[in-house]
Design a protein around this nucleic acid. Sequence first.
DNA 1: GTCTATACTACGATAGAC
DNA 2: GTCTATCGTAGTATAGAC
Lengths: 161, 161
Amino acid sequence: MRDIAAEVGIMPASLYHHFSSKEDLLVSVVSESVAKIQRAVDAAIEDIEEPWVRFTAAILAHVEALLDREGFQVLVMLTLPPEISDTARASLISHRNEYERRFTSLLSAFNTPDGTDQRVLANLILGMLNSIPIWYKVDGGSSPREIGQNILSLVKGAFAQ
Amino acid sequence: MRDIAAEVGIMPASLYHHFSSKEDLLVSVVSESVAKIQRAVDAAIEDIEEPWVRFTAAILAHVEALLDREGFQVLVMLTLPPEISDTARASLISHRNEYERRFTSLLSAFNTPDGTDQRVLANLILGMLNSIPIWYKVDGGSSPREIGQNILSLVKGAFAQ
DNA sequence: GTCTATACTACGATAGAC
DNA sequence: GTCTATCGTAGTATAGAC
């Protein structure tokens, strides 16, 4: 809380005018992050009918929103602090599940190979996407668009039409 | 430290007979976790020559070691605590990089599609693998072997021979 | 190798003035 | 909406007996 206050430029106590507790702030951050990505994906796919084009547009929008500066905070989508309360944990997991559900629905238009499970595939792909900030280099590495191309070349095999 | 001591069944102070600090303990946990996966992968591929078979064996061994009970600690491979010291951070990152380097070398036998980068592909695949514990359900969900099948069906597209 | 006891610090949160 | 001041607690770590 002290670090966040310093970043914002106010005293730690002033944070409690905006958030009732540390956990409340965390839940807000995650909610905002997920909502930001969700909005970007929705905007990217709204006019697209063809399933594969729609799916690839969603992936690219997700990656770009994730890496679009100040978007790195979505890393908290990945791991939940173990000491968190049950109510906060339930709230955070529900946000993750809601996004996962929508993402999975993008896959339902495809015939996936025998032995595959669309929910497992969706979780695998989302895990891959959301891990990018861990190794992404802002300067000198691959651009979000180049990373997106690598992702699509990986993913296309499971959804050959 | 109190939680860990309670889990082990000793007093918090007794931990300092085995580790010089909290960070020292963290570095040990990560080192052990990475080494455990590395050993499992090495054992799985040592007698295999054919690149694709070798690569798939490495992926399956990685997933099984990751999910093999008490292996969940490797989750710390993913995100580093922001408050960690520079020396501890450097140590943890070097373990991650060493494993990434070896994993990337398994890809060097393949012709990857135009526009792809083998290091990016390796990072994407590792991010996907190491995210599995986040959504993996011990009871009722897919087994490690089933998850492995889904992974291979995703990955095979980028390395068609 | 584990214990008791404790020092010291960092943290989350509150009260009340402005 | 932000401040100053501070409370209470939990955290990491140390000292020294057994």
